[in-house]
């Protein structure tokens, strides 16, 4: 009950940190999806480029997130900017890879029919390839978002705020309640967004079956 009262008393701070966390991750995800989709589409036209790009995104993800943020501080100082850039870099792999495989796995006769009927490359990409790759793309976004929410917590170290602040302060002050509430809110955010996207994914899949 103690922890519940603690939560009620500090709800304003908790909500402020939660929304800070949420919008930081949201901004990063929007940028990440835009870049990832464009890169993912472009590399379907060139096998060599695809290999190189996918390799780079893989390396980006193997860098420990704390180290990645640390590298960014000298360039972007502290605050939300290095945090968002770090999350964007870190979440490129699932998005780029899924756009790429989603498009590559489209039945080639569908693309051939579209070309043979005189659809332009632009139209084929937006009317045929992307809609057909959508379920796979959304699956990639789900993975990326869950990763992004988790990274958002660590971003507290570069002064980006968010729920990470609560957890790390709790650790410094050995305040279990702060740690637990911070961790629970982060987990809840990840789970909710993931569930929501899974519904969107199911709808997209249903449209294609």
């Amino acid at each position: 009950m103690d922890i519940f009262n603690f939560f009620i008393n500090r709800i304003e701070t908790i909500m402020k940190l939660t929304s800070q966390h949420f919008f930081m991750v949201l901004t990063a995800m929007i940028i990440s999806i835009v870049i990832g989709v464009i890169v993912g589409i472009l590399i379907t036209y060139n096998e060599k480029a695809a290999e190189v790009v996918l390799h780079i995104t893989k390396i980006l993800m193997t860098i420990p997130s704390l180290a990645l943020f640390a590298i960014l501080i000298p360039i972007f100082r502290i605050g939300a900017t290095p945090a968002i850039i770090g999350i964007v870099l870190y979440t490129q792999l699932p998005i780029v890879r899924n756009v790429y495989t989603g498009i590559k796995n489209i039945n080639p006769s569908i693309i051939e029919a579209a070309r043979g009927m005189g659809m332009s490359r632009f139209k084929i990409t937006f009317k045929i390839k992307l809609p057909l790759a959508l379920p796979v793309l959304i699956a990639g976004i789900r993975t990326a978002v869950v990763m992004g929410v988790g990274m958002g917590a660590i971003a507290s170290y570069v002064g980006a705020g968010g729920l990470g602040d609560y957890v790390f302060q709790g650790i410094q002050r050995t305040n279990d309640k702060m740690i637990i509430i911070g961790a629970l809110m982060i987990s809840l955010m990840a789970i909710l967004v993931d569930r929501l996207l899974s519904l969107v994914q199911k709808r997209a899949e249903k449209k294609l079956s």
Partner: peptide, 21 residues
């Protein structure tokens, strides 16, 4: 231009290639 050319030529293939969406 290939795109214009193709719009005036009907094209049917074995696997049909209907757009599933």
């Amino acid at each position: 231009n290939p795109v214009d050319l193709r719009r005036n030529i009907g094209y049917v293939i074995q696997n049909i290639g209907l757009f599933p969406h």
